[in-house]
């Protein structure tokens, strides 16, 4: 609760600061730097429209920008499709040398590059995720780290899945074994919590972007009796299409996937990075360039569970989900150890 208050205060202060700044610039007397917009650059492994990891951050940045008052207050520069780490590394370095206030490296694989560049540009602030490592042990002070405690949302989605299923068979479509482990582990726990006997079938496609195989995996789960599906990574668009066609419930994660399956996406765990970004901005403006590791949780509103407004969802399902979220927040459900996950 305290955290929530502090965050809302922060955003409020930020807004004030934003207003104040525009007043200042109206005077035309203040120091130039004060009137300049805050400049964020972000480097992403996939596209801004991947409906998963990259998009979740990009959407959050745009939300912060809108909240702060548009491009006059915050500019966003982005490099998308930087799946090659060498390219990303070059982009990070370029942004740093161009004097951006905050350079976000949105991928765990960029960690090396971030620390290398951060050591060379100590006046610039960096952020990277998924991670909890701010480089403090390496003597680095200008790096933020962030990540999502995806097992929380996984758990709640699991609870929802268990409430929804008639067949007691639930299908999970993962990308590469070992990845998205947090979400899937949380999901399985959530299911077992409600229906210990329900069967959770997990299959991996071996790729992050093989939409064709993900779609077929959805078919396979459905034929094997599953009536609720979930999955992660940008490949799931294929599977959601299949769920939609077969009228099988889909539980989304990372970005808003409701538009893809307006009739079947029941809930959606959304990564809301806006608070994290806003907090970083305020820290940087106060001269604190790094050192904090952020985690998205339900408690700090970094994770949100959205219900699809277009479809009828039984009250007891919604109630179960809300209870699960409250249990996680209060700690009644054992909070899982902090781990990295995309």
């Amino acid at each position: 609760m305290l955290r929530r208050i502090s965050i809302s205060t922060l955003i409020f202060l930020l807004l004030l600061a934003g207003c104040g700044r525009s007043d200042d610039s109206g005077d035309g007397e203040t120091v130039g730097a004060e009137g300049d917009p805050f400049r964020i650059a972000i480097v992403m492994p996939s596209s801004t429209t991947d409906i998963a990891w990259s998009q979740s951050m990009f959407d959050s940045l745009v939300a912060v920008q809108t909240e702060m008052g548009g491009e006059d207050a915050l500019t966003i520069a982005y490099s998308e499709g930087m799946f090659r780490v060498t390219d990303a590394s070059a982009a990070i370095r370029d942004y740093a040398s161009e004097g951006f206030d905050l350079v976000i490296a949105h991928g765990a694989q960029y960690g090396n590059s971030v620390f290398e560049v951060a050591a060379d540009f100590t006046e610039t602030s960096f952020a990277w995720g998924t991670s909890s490592d701010t480089g403090a042990d390496k003597g680095i002070e200008n790096v933020f780290a962030y990540g999502a405690v995806a097992n929380e949302g996984g758990y709640v989605n699991g609870v929802v899945a268990a409430m929804l299923t008639q067949t007691d068979v639930i299908g999970v479509i993962g990308p590469v074994a070992g990845d998205a482990k947090l979400y899937i582990d949380g999901f399985v726990r959530g299911v077992t919590e409600i229906k210990p006997d329900a069967q959770v079938n997990i299959s991996y496609t071996g790729s992050f972007s093989d939409t064709t195989l993900a779609a077929e995996a959805a078919h396979v789960h459905i034929q094997a009796g599953a009536d609720v599906l979930t999955g992660s990574a940008q490949q799931v668009v294929g599977a959601i299409g299949v769920a939609n066609e077969n009228g099988v419930a889909w539980l989304g994660t990372q970005s808003d996937q409701i538009s893809l399956g307006p009739d079947v996406v029941v809930t959606n765990q959304i990564y809301n990075w806006a608070n994290v970004v806003a907090d970083m901005i305020s820290k940087i403006e106060n001269g604190e360039l790094g050192g904090t590791a952020y985690k998205l949780t339900f408690a700090n509103d970094g994770l949100r569970l959205e219900f699809n407004e277009n479809i009828e969802i039984a009250d007891e399902v919604k109630e179960a989900a809300r209870t699960a979220i409250e249990d996680i927040k209060s700690g009644a459900v054992d909070p899982v150890l902090w781990e990295e996950d995309e």
Binding site: A108, Q109, G111, N112, T130, S131, S132, D133, V176, A177, G178, D179, K181, G206, S207, L337, W338, E339, E340, D341
Partner: peptide, 27 residues
């Protein structure tokens, strides 16, 4: 080869430091 890499970087070749720290960046 790509699938082999996916496996090795999440299993046998995963950085022991990360394993110890409970993190799992595939490197």
């Amino acid at each position: 080869a790509l699938r082999l890499m996916n496996f090795l970087l999440r299993g046998p070749m995963l950085d022991p430091e990360h394993v110890a720290a409970g993190t799992s960046i595939p490197q």
